[in-house]
């Protein structure tokens, strides 16, 4: 259950961003997670209300975008889909591949409600 730690790390960043922009509240947070990041989206979603209680992001919506596992083959040059425990080239079957998508653990964007509203 390291998702709670991950969630706390995320909220710490979100709080800093909110303070930088003098925001009163955070209305939504968007994260992008790959299956090979080691973070389980469902567990992160469960941890979020607990970790965010009492923070500037309390009540915010958490959007989790999951990314596909894709590999680039250094042998044949193809880009193919792969499974988390089978990162072989889908075209030639070689294991000399590089992951090009699937291990992301990114805070993509935050939607803030400004404290003082400007004209536009």
């Amino acid at each position: 259950m390291h998702e709670l730690s991950v969630c706390q790390g995320m909220l710490s960043q979100v709080s800093t961003i909110a303070a930088e922009h003098a925001a009163r509240t955070v209305s939504s947070i968007t994260v992008r997670i790959g299956p090979l990041s080691g973070v389980e989206p469902a567990l992160l979603a469960q941890a979020f209300p607990i970790a965010s209680a009492g923070t500037v992001a309390s009540g915010a919506e958490l959007h989790i975008e999951t990314l596909p596992v894709r590999v680039y083959c250094e042998t044949c040059g193809e880009e193919t889909d792969a499974a988390v425990n089978r990162l072989l080239c889908g075209s030639c079957g070689d294991y000399h591949t590089r992951l090009i998508s699937g291990d992301e653990l990114l805070l993509a964007s935050v939607e803030l409600d400004a404290e003082t509203q400007s004209a536009h």
């Binding site: 960043q13 961003i17 922009h21 973070v39 990114l106 805070l107 993509a108 935050v110 939607e111």
Partner: peptide, 15 residues
């Protein structure tokens, strides 16, 4: 109005 989206693109564990 009153809401702003901040794009971050930082690792969730950047701290």
């Amino acid at each position: 109005s009153g809401t702003s989206a901040v794009s971050v693109l930082k690792g969730l564990l950047s701290e």
